[in-house]
Amino acid sequence: MGVLKDLFKDYRFSVGFILICFLSFLAIASFFSPYDPIEWLQVPRDKAPSWSHLLGTNSKGQDVFWEATFAIRNSLIIALIAGLISRVIAVLVGFIAGYKGGIYDRVLMGITDGLLVIPLFLILVLVAMLLREALTLVSTGLLLAFFGWAWDARTIRSQVLSLREREFTLTSVLSGNGTLSLVSKEYLPLTIPLIFSTLINNIAWAIGMEIVLAILGLVSLDIPTLGTTLQWAINYQAMLLGHWWWILTPVILTILLLVALYWFSISVSEYLDPRMRIQRIGAK
């Protein structure tokens, strides 16, 4: 509990945390939605916000508020799948390449560099076009995960490389620790902040990427996400027709989500920064 108390002293953490709670609450609220997320013409079309429809209704005859709760939930699912799976790949590749070195390093970094130099966006568009209808939540997440780990694997590797040269590595080896326990006990605690901050950045990147793909119409538009909601609104010229509630809802939610993630990430990584942690340990 002391940890949270310390963290809440940082306003960026508090604001980020409250925003994320609020957005997760919206995502959970989607389970109690009175409407089906895909069905059209369930409510009167193009109504401005009112008590019966908090954020109005759209031209498809859907309630914007409840549609948005589904959009948040689905976008978060995609981003979490992308973020977590790409972290697993990045950590494994980074640690093995960094610690084992030699041939492992050369092969793994060869693959990583290969992924880094290909024009990522074009490939994503190409793959998305081919898979289009098959791009459900999970497969979009996996697709983004597959392209999202290379840079972070490199960062983690370079950190492990420098840790390997520190004397405590030798102490640990002399204490009889094998590779696995050495890496997990000695290196992981020192790389957690890095992994965590890359995780949050990756989640933010995945959310942004999903929106781009959706606006280009490259994902299955039936599933409401922040991106597809925006795509529909643009497609129906919501701005031109003065249906501001329809287009502003996903825009504002996206901005809130990205700001929250950003503040959350910098305050937590500052807290987890080994130098700060050492200071705190010393301060007790």
């Binding site: 310390d6 002293k9 700060m276 200071q279 705190r280 301060a283």
Partner: peptide
């Protein structure tokens, strides 16, 4: 003078 999370040292 170090100040960390309200504690002054």
């Amino acid at each position: 003078v170090l100040e960390y999370l309200g504690k002054k040292k």
